[in-house]
Design a protein around this nucleic acid. Structure first.
Lengths: 251, 251
DNA sequence: CGGGGTCTTGAGGTGTTTCAACGTCGGTGG
DNA sequence: CCACCGACGTTGAAACACCTCAAGACCCCG
């Protein structure tokens, strides 16, 4: 049995909102066109008016902001299962671009379809709203992270967040997940130059906190990394503490 | 005739969403308890489960994040007319504290009442959702501002944003609005120490870009400041460019 | 007329950037 | 199969933005 490409999206919604069978079914039968997107390619451009929201089915994507003088900054990272611009349903004019960080599979779900299920199921309207609120909460934490932590703890905090969002934080101590992103781009997410990212990543490796290399992240002792980064997953609004959830393998 | 304390909130909603008379009326007749809050007092504490959302009727409030080692950061600033934690309707557990930056008047609107009007008027449910999305868009811009701009342009950008949100950006060149916030706290919003805020503010004054003093901000040449800060108000999602709107006086 | 909070200024220290060079790796074509 | 190439990663040294610490000035309120 081939699971729906929408299954990861439903899983994500259900970590934050309770949905009955009819509502779950409405999500799983959403229409949409599926496309492959090469790494480093924009699939939503700045200022564009879209008529569909982008569901990340595989790979990693990022939201980019930019200043007039051309400096870029990643303002959000989206993993498989994330509807990267669910907000576009109520604000179709893109205020930032979306780009694939790795080769990615994206499903374009028409706004009309999303509006339709939201109108038919109040619980879904609320679930969509709640998911946008969670994204805002993550953005707030990024503001905190950029402003108060310095390079090493800031970097550690980002990867703790990604581990928690991937759902790889289990009872096993050792954690690992794919991260096929260059140091240059990682710098654009952390507000650091690629040179400093390199030194920072090396320092984290030497300190045995985490190993960011070969397109992967390895965290040998989760509890150690969590404390080093002073990471508290509450802001992710993923329900009960992820430590209690069954371990999910991501390859 | 005494205008409803909810009028500024309705104005804010209508800058982003079209509402008919019945819907406008539903907003204006929302129930709620009104309270004075002293400067520097939390009116929502971290981790608290709330049963009402906080509408800022007068004064300035801020959302605070904090790390374990006690460093604080302002992750959002809220002006009169903002429902500071509208998101709490769908995520009642506060992931950050709300504090009055100046003496403020706050109206506590029960979640039940907000859910009720949202259920009765789909347009209101959408307007609430859209307002949360706009807050998220502002947070994204703050991430950009913290990561890529340095102290002077970063500070200038923040005040350009506040001017645009206050609605004081008119056809007149000179702009002025109240800002009764200490340099210490301004630093917590900008990710700078109060000492550096002081030097930065002085530099902006000497360059005649903006004068932040005496609990006010004065911007002598809006266009000049706008360009210096590379400020583009699109992300505020306040509809047509604010330059075209009639000048509003804020005292 | 104090006094506490806020603003101001100086001097030295630190984290990060900049610039520049070199190393490594995976793919491509001869 | 190896030479080449471009992208990415690594390292060093100097410059810079911002921080820290510290002292003094201002200013409103009691």
């Amino acid at each position: 049995v081939n699971p729906s490409p929408l299954q990861p999206f439903l899983d994500r919604l259900m970590k934050r909102s309770a949905l009955n069978e009819a509502q779950q079914d409405a999500i799983l039968t959403l229409p949409g066109r599926i496309e492959q997107v090469d790494a480093n390619r924009d699939f939503v451009r700045l200022g564009e008016r879209t008529e569909h929201a982008c569901l990340i089915i595989a790979g990693i994507a990022a939201k980019f902001g930019q200043t007039f003088d051309g400096r870029r900054q990643i303002t959000a990272i989206h993993l498989r299962g994330d509807m990267a611009d669910l907000h576009s349903v109520v604000a179709p004019k893109a205020t930032s671009a979306l780009q694939a960080l790795s080769a990615a599979t994206v499903m374009y779900v028409p706004h009309t379809a999303l509006r339709d299920v939201a109108a038919r199921h109040q619980a879904l309207a609320e679930a969509f709203w709640r998911d946008c609120v969670a994204d805002a909460s993550i953005a707030s934490e990024w503001i905190l992270n950029l402003a108060v932590r310095q390079a090493q703890t800031r970097t550690a905090h980002l990867f703790c967040e990604l581990a928690a969002r991937y759902g790889v934080v289990g009872n096993g101590r050792s954690i690992s997940f794919p991260f096929p992103v260059t140091q240059e781009r990682l710098g654009e997410a952390l507000g650091l130059t690629s040179v400093h990212v390199n030194r920072t990543v090396k320092a984290l490796r030497d300190a045995e906190i985490m190993d960011v290399r070969h397109r992967r992240v390895d965290i040998p002792y989760w509890e150690h990394a969590r404390r080093y980064a002073t990471f508290n997953p509450d802001y992710l609004q993923l329900g009960p503490s992820p430590e209690k959830k069954p371990l999910t393998i991501v390859t």
